[in-house]
Structures are given as C-alpha cells and as structure tokens.
Amino acid sequence: MNTKYMNPYLAGFFLGIVLLASIFITGRGLGASGAIKSVVVETVDGLAPSHAESSPFYSTYVGPGKENPLKSWLVFEIAGVVIGAFISGLVSDRLKVVTEAGPRVKSGLRWAFAVVGGALFGVGAQFARGCTSGAALSGMAVLSTAGFVTMLAIFGTGYAVAYVARKLWL
C-alpha cells in the first residue's frame, strides 16, 4: 500500500485541467453516477421493456425514438475512467486484487458496507442530480448553486455521521 501517490495538489490541478478541458471542449463537466443510471435503465429495459416504458422514471430515458441509454456521453467517459485508472495502476504498480478495509474490519463486513454505501450513493445521486463528480465538483467549476449545496451536504453529513461509523475505519 505504500506505492507513492502524486502530490495531492498536483493531482488536483491535473484533475482540474481535465475538468476544464471537458467544459471548454464539450460544454459540460465530468460525471459518474449518470453512467451507473444508464446501466440500470438499459438492464431494466432489456429484462422488462413494458415495465420500463410504463414507469415514470425509466420512460424518461427509454422508449420509441430514444437512443440506447448506453450510447451516452457519461458511459463513454466512465469507460475512459476504467481505462485511465487501469493504466495509472499499471504504471504505478498498484494493480492487485484485494479488499481494502479498516484495520478492525473483516472482508465480509467491508463488502456489506460497500454495497450499502453504494446503494445510498445511487439513491442520493438521483435526488441531487449527480454525485461528488457530476453535481459537486463539476457544479462548483461552473459556479452552480447546486454544486456548492450538494458538496456541503455530502461532506457536512459525512462529518456528522463519521463518529458513529468510526469502527469501520479507525
């Protein structure tokens, strides 16, 4: 675990430049949860098309005349993230199949909490129209009120509940 990471400010600057390039070239910021949504929408549409078309949530994304939800900007961007992260892990020698958990947490418990955390992000990102990347970071870059509100809500709540969950990480 001690492979050296980049200086956080340098990494942040690099991330900011990628985000700026995205806004400058395509007019939109980066995101992540939207790609997860596309996968869910496409799966539901594939397994139960009539259910998808009658549902007020899925019908916004699927139906006659609509593009395949997987052919979306964020899905391609997230595919890039997978490639980019893999290359970075390869270069910095961090490719390893492993479960990372707090010192007092067994793998099974860690997995359970990872699923719960992921599910909460899945729900929360729908309400907030984006996650830490799509709503908070990209929103802040274009000075959107939603970006700052979401960022404060995520980190504010995180600190508020951190004590309760301390055994997971300390």
């Binding site: 980066l30 995101g31 992540a32 949860s33 790609a35 997860i36 997230i78 993230v81 997978v82 490639i83 980019g84 992260a85 893999f86 970075s88 892990g89 961090r94 490719l95 390893k96 199949v97 492993v98 990372e100 909490f113 990872a114 699923v115 719960v116 955390g117 992921g118 599910a119 909460l120 992000f121 899945g122 729900v123 929360g124 990102a125 729908q126 309400f127 907030a128 129209r129 996650c131 830490t132 990347s133 709503a135 908070a136 509100v149 979401t150 960022m151 404060l152 809500a153 995520i154 980190f155 504010g156 709540t157 995180g158 508020a160 509940v161 951190a162 969950a165 997971l168 990480w169």
Partner: peptide, 26 residues
C-alpha cells in the same frame, strides 16, 4: 440527496467515480 450520499461515503468509503477507478485496479 447530498446528505444520503454523505452517509454512503462514510459507510462505503467511495463515491461513484472513485469506486469505478478503484474497481479498475482490482
């Protein structure tokens, strides 16, 4: 939504973008 995600962050240790990134390296 942000508050729900905040709880998710502490319990899950990731956010969606970083989880994809971490999953990509194993």
């Amino acid at each position: 939504g942000g508050a729900i995600m905040g709880v998710g962050f502490v319990l899950g240790g990731y956010c969606p973008g970083t989880s994809v990134c971490a999953a990509a390296i194993g």
